[in-house]
Lab assay of single mutants.
Amino acid sequence: IRCIGVSNRDFVEGMSGGTWVDVVLEHGGCVTVMAQDKPTVDIELVTTTVSNMAEVRSYCYEASISDMASDSRCPTQGEAYLDKQSDTQYVCKRTLVDRGWGNGCGLFGKGSLVTCAKFTCSKKMTGKSIQPENLEYRIMLSVHGSQHSGMIVNDTGYETDENRAKVEVTPNSPRAEATLGGFGSLGLDCEPRTGLDFSDLYYLTMNNKHWLVHKEWFHDIPLPWHAGADTGTPHWNNKEALVEFKDAHAKRQTVVVLGSQEGAVHTALAGALEAEMDGAKGKLFSGHLKCRLKMDKLRLKGVSYSLCTAAFTFTKVPAETLHGTVTVEVQYAGTDGPCKIPVQMAVDMQTLTPVGRLITANPVITESTENSKMMLELDPPFGDSYIVIGVGDKKITHHWHRSGSTIGKAFEATVRGAKRMAVLGDTAWDFGSVGGVFNSLGKGIHQIFGAAFKSLFGGMSWFSQILIGTLLVWLGLNTKNGSISLTCLALGGVMIFLSTAVSA
């Protein structure tokens, strides 16, 4: 259960009878995928790494000078000259100064003066180019299975845990398959586009800190620079940016070097996208990844198990997540596992009318040892309800109150669905055939309105939902006002479609 501690969480529900669903994975976010007769899966884009970055340009932001020398000439005696002028490691300046009897010249006039100092770069920052084909995306998957609280967001041991898996995709191999043991396998067909235009970005490294910066900004930095990788004795261009020549006297000129420019660069980098280094690879934390999940090989585990009949206890007080759902960790005293956990939410304890829904599909106890633990997640209705676990006299209950409203949740879900469709863009549509167009249209309606429909009408039977949709269509056909007619027709059509397409 990876997503319960992530604030940016998206719930995606598969269409009834569908074998695939489109998701948008982004750094700092987590996606929970639910479908009829399929286990619930949490998917998170953990890291995006980039390798084989080529150094484009380096800037010196802290330097020192040494070996200063000057040469001067009297008027009419030609130009002052130093051998160091031809050495690229030196920074030199030529000027004219007033000369006369007082400073060793027989004539009054302008004399030539040249001053040089050896330039040494102490600290530099480097910009590297990123090729999209060198990106690698690491995705962690977790099935809502027989897990306890100690396994949440624990990325170790996934090789031997059938509840978890790690997959890596690249532009050259965008397809992967996550093996989930008894739950089958989940196929991923990803489109490795981060949403960032790397043709316009460089990877900047300064003092063990890293950013993504725009090329134009990078090339306009007014500091000494050299092109390409460091060859040991780089040729620094624009050395004068960190060196200041003071007022010249008759035979000498003082040279000083400016202080470190790291603070000024940090100020200019305010708002830039931060990154990290992992050995020789860069780690990015921006952008998104679009994936199509193929769920035809994914299956529920323990459908044929019998119900657990022994007593359950709450190991922890049920807690609310950031998303309005409830996490419950229970301990089973029996030894008759594997068995299914009898769990439901009810409005009252007399009729036990089921409300809400299970995020953890078909929760089971897989071990036959005593005191096995299991964590599950529920989506309670707004208002008061009861969490009921167990059967008969051994069942345990917990009162729950959820604040908020169904309308607010439906609106929030619609906005999130619209954002998801905007990110998917043209990849969500198939114009290759008439059937493809209608299929894409259905998927689009489901992406945007599916979660809201589930919130508003999830407790009704599909037949009642179709009746309401048919009534809206009838009202649309018999209303003389054009805008009201079109609105009723659209709402009725969407409702009829979703009542037959969205899983219960």
Score class of each variant (00 low, 15 high):
S499R: 02
G408P: 08
G302M: 11
H219L: 15
L489Y: 12
L441H: 07
T254G: 00
V23C: 03
N8I: 04
K283A: 12
V91M: 11
L258M: 15
T120S: 05
G78W: 08
V91W: 06
S403D: 12
V50W: 07
V265G: 12
Y202Q: 06
V169Y: 07
R138Y: 05
L475T: 09
L113P: 00
Y332V: 04
L196I: 15
G482M: 13
F449E: 13
V494Q: 12
G282S: 00
R73L: 05
V243A: 10
E262N: 09
G109V: 07
K246S: 09
L491C: 09
E377F: 05
I130F: 12
F198N: 05
V143E: 08
G459P: 04
V24I: 15
V437G: 00
F438E: 01
L258P: 10
F382Y: 09
F431C: 14
P354H: 09
L300F: 02
F449S: 10
S86V: 02
P363S: 07
L475N: 09
G182C: 11
P354L: 00
A250E: 05
G195Y: 08
R416S: 09
H214N: 12
V114S: 10
M53P: 00
G157I: 15
G444C: 09
R57E: 07
A241V: 09
H27F: 04
Q447F: 09
V347S: 00
D230L: 14
T327W: 15
I1A: 01
G127A: 14
I359C: 06
K84F: 08
D348N: 14
V243D: 04
S149C: 10
M374I: 11
R193W: 10
F438V: 11
T115Y: 07
V434H: 12
T194H: 12
G390I: 05
G450C: 11
V41L: 14
Y61D: 06
T32D: 04
K251H: 04
D197M: 14
E367F: 01
V21C: 05
S372G: 15
A490L: 13
W211Q: 09
K166L: 08
G435P: 00
V97Q: 08
L113M: 15
K166E: 14
N208R: 11
V97I: 14
V437E: 03
Y90M: 13
C488S: 12
T88W: 10
S129N: 14
I365S: 03
A165R: 15
E370M: 13
V391T: 00
S464N: 11
D42R: 01
G263S: 09
R402F: 11
G14Q: 08
D426K: 15
G109I: 06
G17D: 11
A117S: 00
M53V: 05
L293Y: 03
F411A: 05
K246N: 06
R420M: 11
H266N: 00
E262I: 10
T321H: 06
L141K: 07
V494P: 00
L293A: 02
G18I: 01
D278T: 12
A280S: 14
E136W: 14
V343R: 00
N8Y: 08
K409R: 15
E62P: 00
S199K: 01
S503K: 07
V41F: 15
N481I: 09
A311I: 06
V423H: 06
S306P: 02
K209W: 09
A504R: 02
Y90F: 09
A319H: 02
S72L: 01
H401L: 06
W400L: 05
S260G: 07
R73F: 08
V317G: 00
V41E: 02
A410K: 10
M151P: 08
F431S: 12
V330S: 02
K209Q: 11
N172K: 05
Y90N: 13
S64I: 04
S72M: 07
H235R: 14
E329C: 10
K118L: 12
G271E: 09
E412V: 14
F463Y: 14
D22F: 07
T427I: 08
R94C: 08
T160N: 00
L141H: 04
N439E: 05
S385H: 12
R252V: 03
P234T: 11
D37H: 03
S464P: 10
A69C: 14
S149F: 15
A501E: 08
P354N: 14
T156G: 01
K38Y: 07
E44S: 00
F108K: 05
Q331P: 03
N371E: 12
T156D: 11
A319T: 14
K215S: 05
T19G: 04
D426Q: 13
K124N: 11
R299D: 05
V502L: 10
T470P: 00
G182S: 15
W429G: 06
F382D: 06
D230R: 14
K301C: 03
V256D: 01
N103C: 06
C116M: 11
K290I: 06
I1L: 01
V6R: 00
L471Q: 13
C116P: 06
L298F: 14
S16M: 08
T120R: 14
I387A: 02
E274R: 02
E13N: 08
I139K: 07
T309M: 12
P222L: 12
V265L: 13
G436E: 01
A80T: 08
A275F: 02
I130H: 05
L113A: 00
Q261I: 10
F453W: 11
G145R: 08
D189S: 13
Q147N: 00
R2E: 08
R252E: 05
V355T: 10
L293M: 07
S185H: 08
E26M: 10
P338A: 02
Q85E: 07
L196E: 00
V21H: 01
G324N: 11
W225V: 03
S405Y: 09
W211V: 05
L269F: 14
H399C: 07
E370T: 04
G18M: 06
L212A: 07
G404F: 11
D83Q: 13
S433W: 04
P222M: 13
I484L: 15
N163R: 00
L298D: 03
V21G: 01
A176Q: 04
S66Q: 01
S112V: 14
G287M: 02
I466C: 14
I43P: 00
T194D: 00
P171N: 10
F285M: 09
D348M: 06
A229G: 15
I407D: 07
L141E: 10
D278H: 15
G436K: 05
L135Q: 06
K215F: 02
K297E: 11
G184H: 08
Q344T: 11
M34E: 06
K84N: 13
P381V: 00
I221R: 00
S433D: 05
E133N: 08
L186C: 05
A264G: 06
V56D: 04
T360K: 08
E168H: 02
G469F: 08
E262W: 12
T406K: 08
V41W: 06
S440F: 05
N237K: 15
E191F: 08
G17L: 01
T321K: 08
K373E: 13
Q350L: 12
T205F: 03
G157E: 15
Q85I: 01
L201R: 01
G408L: 05
G282N: 03
A227C: 01
W217G: 04
A275E: 00
E377T: 03
H27P: 02
A311F: 13
S199Y: 02
L45M: 13
T115F: 06
V437Q: 05
A270G: 08
S440P: 10
G187K: 11
E162N: 03
A54D: 01
G408N: 11
M15Q: 04
N478Q: 15
D336P: 13
C190R: 09
G302D: 12
